[in-house]
C-alpha cells in the first residue's frame, strides 16, 4: 500500500491531500498565495523602482506633494475587493468543513498523554458492538531512537513500504474504510491535544470535557500520517496519528472479525474522559 502524501525531504508546499476538501483547501491556499505574490510584486516592485530611480546620488530632486485622495481611495477599495474574492470561497469551504451530516461511520478519538485512543461508535447506521478500543502509541523503534543520546540514527527507522517513519508511526493505527464519510468525535482525556491528518484536512483540538467533531471521506486506500499539534507536555512530539485506510470489503471483514458480545460496547461509549483535578506535579 503506497503511502499517500506524507512529508518528504525538501518539501516546500502544502500537499494536495487525499480528500475533496483537502484539495479544495489546497486550491484556496494556492489562490491566496498567488494573490500575495502578485501584491508583493506590485508593492516591492514599486518600492524598488523608487529606490533605483529616485536616488539623491543620481540627482533626484524631491517632490513636495504629500497626498492624493483618489489614490488613497483606490488602495483602500481594491484590497477590500481582493479580500472579498478570497473570503467567498473560504466561507463556502468552511461550511463544508463543518458539515458532518450524512456520515456513515463514527469514531471517537481521545487524546491522552501520550497516546491516542480510538473507539468505533457506529458504522452504516448501526452501533458497533464489542470492538475493542485501539490504543495508538508511538512505535517502539521510534521510541527507542528518540531517547536522548540513543545512538540510533533516526534515518534508520523505516517502515515496510520504505517510508522513513521516525516519529510518524504507531503501534496500532486507526483503521477506516475507503470511500466512506467518517465522522471523528474528538476529545481529550487529560490536557488539550490536537488530532490532525494533513491529507484529510481533518483537524480539531482534543479538549478535555468538550467534544468536537470533524470528518473525512478518503477514496484511496493507504497509510496516512499526522501528528498531535497542540502542546501537551514533554512527549508532545511523540504522539503521531496514523490512519490506515483499507478497501471497504476488507474493512467489513476486519470489523466483523473484531466484533464481540455487546457488553463491552457500553463501556466504550461511556468511557469517562472528563478530567478530574490535574494531578499535583511531582517535585
Amino acid at each position: 500500500m503506497a503511502a499517500a502524501a506524507n512529508p518528504v525531504p525538501w518539501q516546500m508546499n502544502l500537499g494536495k491531500g487525499a480528500t475533496t476538501v483537502s484539495r479544495e483547501i489546497w486550491d484556496l491556499h494556492m489562490a491566496a498565495l498567488w494573490v500575495c505574490v502578485a501584491l508583493g510584486v506590485i508593492v516591492f516592485g514599486a518600492m524598488f523602482i523608487a529606490i533605483f530611480r529616485f536616488r539623491r546620488s543620481k540627482g533626484a530632486v524631491a517632490a513636495t506633494w504629500s497626498h492624493n485622495t483618489l489614490l488613497e481611495v483606490c488602495w483602500t477599495i481594491v484590497p477590500i475587493l481582493i479580500l472579498v474574492g478570497l473570503a467567498l470561497p473560504a466561507t463556502l469551504l468552511t461550511r463544508k468543513l463543518y458539515n458532518t451530516s450524512g456520515a456513515q461511520m463514527t469514531v471517537k478519538v481521545t487524546g491522552y498523554q501520550w497516546l491516542w485512543r480510538y473507539d468505533y461508535i457506529s458504522y452504516e447506521g448501526k452501533p458497533v458492538t464489542g470492538v475493542k478500543p485501539i490504543f495508538s502509541r508511538l512505535a517502539w523503534n521510534s521510541n527507542a531512537a528518540r531517547q536522548l543520546d540513543s545512538g540510533i540514527n533516526p534515518d534508520s527507522i523505516v517502515s515496510r513500504d520504505g517510508y522513513h517513519d521516525y516519529l510518524l508511526n504507531v503501534t496500532h493505527p486507526l483503521v477506516i474504510p475507503a470511500g466512506v464519510k467518517v465522522r471523528f468525535l474528538i476529545t481529550g482525556g487529560d490536557v488539550i491535544h490536537g488530532w490532525w491528518v494533513p491529507d484529510f484536512a481533518a483537524k480539531r483540538d482534543a479538549i478535555p470535557g468538550i467534544m468536537n467533531d470533524a470528518w473525512a471521506k478518503v477514496d484511496k486506500p493507504g497509510i496516512y500520517r499526522g501528528q498531535c499539534y497542540v502542546l501537551c507536555g514533554q512527549d508532545h512530539s511523540a504522539m503521531p496519528v496514523v490512519v490506515k485506510v483499507v478497501p471497504r470489503d476488507q474493512f467489513n471483514a476486519w470489523l466483523s472479525a473484531q466484533e464481540q458480545p455487546a457488553t463491552l460496547d457500553r463501556a466504550a461509549r461511556t468511557a469517562q474522559v472528563g478530567p478530574r483535578k490535574p494531578a499535583p506535579a511531582k517535585g
Binding site: 514599486a46 523608487a50 529606490i51 529616485f54 539623491r56 524631491a62
Partner: peptide, 11 residues
C-alpha cells in the same frame, strides 16, 4: 512606498 516615490532617496 508613495512617500519614497519621487523623493530624493539616500540610504
Amino acid at each position: 512606498v508613495t512617500t519614497m516615490w519621487r523623493g530624493s532617496l539616500s540610504f
